[in-house]
Amino acid sequence: MYRIRFHGRGGQGMKTASRILGSAFFRAGYEVQDAPRYGAERRGAPIFAYVRAAREPINERGVIAEPDLVIVADESLVGIAAAGVCQGLSERSVLLINSHEDVATWTHRLNLAGPVLVLPAREAVADRAELPFAGTACAGAAAVLVGVIPRDGLEAAVREELGSLPQQVIDQNVAVALHAYDEMRDHAGLVREAPTRSAKDYEPPAWLEPVFEDARHSAPAIHAAATSVQVRTGLWRTLRPVIDYDRCNKCWWVCSTFCPDSCISVTDDGVPEIDYDHCKGCMICVAKCPPHAIGAIPETDARDAALTGEPS
């Protein structure tokens, strides 16, 4: 059985990468299991996804503890212990990092027993706006490294998994995936299926019996204040409310009172201000404003404007 883990950040397409690789394996006649794993986090948080592929039905489930291949889309995750990038790597597992730095640097830095490869991150790929391609590139590289997925099978899998996107975007993704496939061709088949480990001479789990501890310590309480301010729920927004201050009649209370997330504050002069770090874009203020002074624009437009330096 092949066991492969993809590590990235929410929004970089790790789930899609696992699905592209899963579909490519499935097309090559394999039984497949692919799944993302995340908590309540959204964009930017470390997430991972995994793929199992075998010639027989797969009974193993859950997180892959001993991967044959680990692919890291975002090199900044390597230093974050909680991301668990290097978890379970052995002398026979391959680590592939999407990075600007070279193999020698990473080999020296990580001091791993197994092979380390670098998928060169091009400027276009490293650019924030181009991040969706990171997942496709990783899937393309994985497809060649396992050695059993043909180039056209990869292309078909990309087209299948991205089917709902505009044709031009699909074509770009196909090009990125195939480029990564070709780029790593020298290492085709480097990743091998691990032999099934015997139930004989297994390492027994270090079980322990939890003991009673009083509720001051064993109740799940967080003692720091205002931790929810740290969570930028504004990243969830797809529509952005925008105040037209020329139309605002400085009523001082309607929008700020109706905002269910307390994201609109009013200055002493009666001017409302929206906290975009936490506004989820529910649009209640847009509906409630008596002089219709709050409009709505797609969040993507606002972000594009911010990236190009134009005012939103």
Binding site: N59, E60, R61, G62, T196, R197, S198, A199, K200
Partner: peptide, 18 residues
């Protein structure tokens, strides 16, 4: 679904004679 993990364990235990 965790029972499929048990299936996997059963296969491996049977392979070692259990």
């Amino acid at each position: 679904s965790f029972a499929t993990k048990a299936r996997d364990a059963v296969d491996r235990l049977r392979a070692s004679g259990e």
